[in-house]
Computed example of a mutant assay.
Amino acid sequence: MARLMDTALRIPGTRVSLGADSVLGLIPGIGDFAAAAVSLVIVNEARRLGVPNDKLVRMLFNVGFDTVAGSVPVLGDVFDVYFKSNHRNLQLVLDHFGLDHADLDR
C-alpha cells in the first residue's frame, strides 16, 4: 500500500516517482484528506501488529504533516511528490521488527 500511495509511477527520464497520494492531492478540497484516510489504514495496521506508541505517534505526525503541507495549493502538490509519508511510516514498522525494505522482496 505504501508503494501504491508514494511511488507507484516513475516520471520517465528522471529519478522522481509519485503515487496515488500525489494524484489524489490534485482533487481540490477532498484529495489530501482521502489520501490521509488511506495512510491511516497503514497506521492502524501497525497498531494491530504491536508497533509501540512512540512510533505510532511519529507515524501520525508524518500523516498529519503530509496532509497539512499537501493541502497548500500548487506548492502542496509539489511537496507530495517529494515527501513520502507512507514510505517513512513503513520504514518505522520495518525498523521495529528489525527488517529492511530489501527483506520484503524475499
Rank of each mutant, 00 (worst) to 15 (best):
M1C: 10
L4P: 10
M5C: 13
M5W: 13
D6R: 00
A8Q: 09
L9Q: 04
P12K: 05
G13E: 10
T14C: 00
R15G: 06
V16D: 12
V16S: 15
L18K: 00
V23C: 13
V23F: 11
L24M: 05
L24N: 00
L24C: 07
I30A: 12
I30C: 11
G31P: 14
A34T: 04
A37T: 11
V38K: 00
V38M: 08
S39F: 09
I42M: 01
I42E: 02
N44R: 00
E45N: 12
A46L: 07
R47K: 03
L49F: 04
L49G: 00
V51L: 07
V51T: 01
P52F: 03
P52S: 07
P52R: 04
N53L: 14
D54T: 13
K55V: 15
L60E: 06
F61W: 13
N62L: 03
V63R: 03
F65K: 04
F65H: 05
A69G: 08
A69K: 02
V72R: 04
V74K: 02
V74H: 11
L75S: 06
G76Q: 00
D77R: 04
V78M: 09
F79P: 02
F79K: 03
S85G: 10
N86R: 08
H87K: 10
N89D: 07
L90V: 00
L92N: 03
F97Y: 14
G98S: 08
G98A: 14
L99I: 08
H101T: 12
H101V: 14
D105C: 10
D105F: 15
R106C: 14
